[in-house]
Design a protein around this nucleic acid. Sequence first.
DNA 1: GTTGTTATCGATCATATGATCACGATGTGC
DNA 2: GCACATCGTGATCATATGATCGATAACAAC
Lengths: 316, 316
Amino acid sequence: MNEAYDELAFEPHEEELLSRVAWHYYHDGLTQSEIGERLNLSRIKVSRMLDRGRKMGLIHVHINSSYGGCFALEARLQEIYGLDEARVIPAQETGNVNDRLAEAASQYLMGRLKDQEMLAVGWGATVMGTLQRLSRTLSYKDISLVSLTGGVSAYIEGVASGRSSQNVHLIPAPLVVSQESIAEAIRAERHVVEVMSMARTANYALVGIGAVADEATLIASGYASRSQFEIFRRQGAVGDIIGIFYDQAGEPLDLPFHKMLVGLDFEALSAIPQVIAAAGGPRKVDAIRAAARGGRIDVLITDEPTAQAIIEKDQA
Amino acid sequence: MNEAYDELAFEPHEEELLSRVAWHYYHDGLTQSEIGERLNLSRIKVSRMLDRGRKMGLIHVHINSSYGGCFALEARLQEIYGLDEARVIPAQETGNVNDRLAEAASQYLMGRLKDQEMLAVGWGATVMGTLQRLSRTLSYKDISLVSLTGGVSAYIEGVASGRSSQNVHLIPAPLVVSQESIAEAIRAERHVVEVMSMARTANYALVGIGAVADEATLIASGYASRSQFEIFRRQGAVGDIIGIFYDQAGEPLDLPFHKMLVGLDFEALSAIPQVIAAAGGPRKVDAIRAAARGGRIDVLITDEPTAQAIIEKDQA
DNA sequence: GTTGTTATCGATCATATGATCACGATGTGC
DNA sequence: GCACATCGTGATCATATGATCGATAACAAC
């Protein structure tokens, strides 16, 4: 019935117990058995509580290092581009970079999102992965979701399923439509107007950054063609955020394509207190760099080689 | 002494490696062996690096919960006053503090009370609230209740209703009477003597802590007058437990008022293995602090701002 | 050079941990 | 009412972890 309540997973009283268990484990260095004895719980239950605490973001491990590989890069990124925060995940041969970015992004958000806050989400594979990992925390903390663009419904539904739909507000339209007039009509719809104005009030925006490359998700999902991309590239596009292409300086280009988008523009995006971008991989170096230089984003989550490449390019 | 700092001054390169190890371990969830393979280190070395990282504070675990700050206070309270246990509930704007304290106290007792045990209860609003919430557990676990003082009947009856009255033993008298001779007569009654000697055998005592303030429940319920309180205050009273007023050091004062009480004295109270006090709020800071310093209580359940204030006062 | 001291390392082993399985309670739909 | 699914629980067991110990290397003092 009330699935949202079910997914709340624990009541305030249980949160106390969970926090207490975590405190003893991490702060006092007790073993799970010792904690069990103290709090009258079986060892296995303590183990499971810790597991839940970690998955829900209640337990946050921060590696507090001012030097060191990724952390040096983080500091440099923050300094060079004036970011609020940068997260750089270490290079790793195995594993999908996007998965690991999504993991890092969801952990970042878990630690950041407070009760009653609203998160606006953009479009893209990394955003999708992040939301999937976040779903439990979202319902637990009573976070509202709102879409920044159309085309989000496809993947957000899995995340939203089982939650009261009151907290999820989607733009019921594709990301791009075939004609400017249709886009205008959709943008004028009452419900779309409502969702978009709600998105403007979000506390955070989570966006991906797209490269102007044939492998882009925009092409793979049929929203744009390779020839269009070729034209964008000739006009100076180096990347896109929520479907809007921008140049080396991070300034949005004046493309007909933009007129066919259903979603917020850069001005509205910048008005959101904190824009969090998760993106990485060699193809996206220029796109991320331009976005950072243009002040399009406040928080960047990327991988080590990408961060390195971005900084090197800006020092030459 | 300064070895920790000496060891802190290791090569930046080593710290980078350490950070990377920590990241893989805590963030990616890899095992120490996997990290070792990847970075060409022996498993045992990885283990030691993590150990060093923890000891040096490079790895910081944050518990992202309103309870997070409370546990530190609990530990300090236990340490400073030699309490068996302290429970601190988080600050919260909404909700009655007394209700939340009663909730916490009942939860504490639920986890503590074993079958066939006996709980002695004092007088006060928080005690009443706690008992109401406890009623289910009490009947389920076959716990006996006994009163520490008179005046308890009024509110304990609701709790006791529906249970075999065998397990509830009340002192059939008010908390305070008007003359010393009457109090003496009541205390000499066979039934009263029986209940009071039974109270001495209780496993736990649950008491409130009263402030010497005009808002005290003792005044509100007509057991004492404001002028009396003014006199108590002049004599150095900072608080009361089961109607007995004590000074800054937690030592009972020699007041005529005490001779008119029907109930146990401090000596008998201290003989009960564990005295549990639930009290909070800005007015009670001094009362709680004195009770704790004087060793009047073994377990303290209070709220975060009060705990903070108590500790601060004792550090100045 | 020697010798004593200390730090570091890995092997070994006891313990801590979490994955898996099986059971019982609870709730659900027919 | 009954079968069925789901969840929470504890038992069992494989694995991960960290404590201990001896060996070795580096280094200082003589």
